[in-house]
Amino acid sequence: MSGHGNKERAFVRLTKSERIQHVILFVSTGLLILTGFMLMGEVWAIKLFGSTAKSIFYWRGIVHRIAAVAVTAVCFYHLYYVLFKADGRSWIRDMLPRLKDGVDACQNVMYMLGKRDERPKMDRFTYLEKLEYFSVYFGMFIVITTGTMMWTQSYWPKFYLDVADAFHLGEATLAALAIIVGHIFTVHYNPHVYPMNKAFIDGNISETMMKEEHALWYERLIAEETGQTANATEGGRGHA
């Protein structure tokens, strides 16, 4: 816990390892989106670069592959992290979907429609965060598999490469839109966090945010802090 004097109290949202994984993930994914969709670029726009377009496209392929290796490495490390590290095990345990997520989703929609006075109390990860997290697993499986196939194209029949190409592009489009419309709005343009949720930098979440977004988790941590841990469920982290 931090927060002596006038400073607001903060809780640990992301550990150092998780923040590093996230940085590698978003830098690599950004590069992959940029260098990948360059192949779909409008010819007139590419011609604006003149003679440098040739060099740009040469480096495009190299950067795309380097970023692909980085994102694959971080995905495999994350699997190791959630299976073998204490913080990772706690992370995945809290991330697993539960019946309550469905109830939360319904109640939250009711709240947004004005049919309910209060938002549901959500745990460490909201139903939307869980959906986003497991979508990344699904998406990564698709793009890594099909990307690897296209990288080793001489070993595959044309039919499979066409299927891989279609899946790779389709999933990349879906992921790019999900990141821009979903994730970037949530962590940057949402009035609650505008201009950015700094948790990905300092790893902390403020007490106010905790109460608003993760009330159930907050209550559990406070209960643990005040010694009422007997009935508290396992999981969660200490305070910053």
Binding site: I56, Y58, R60, W156
Partner: peptide
Amino acid sequence: SPQRAQLLTFGEGANVIKQYKDFYLP
């Protein structure tokens, strides 16, 4: 087009040609 030129120089076609020097058939 720059994309096609890149493909013919470094991309799918060119890579296949390099890798297919021994003409491995699936």
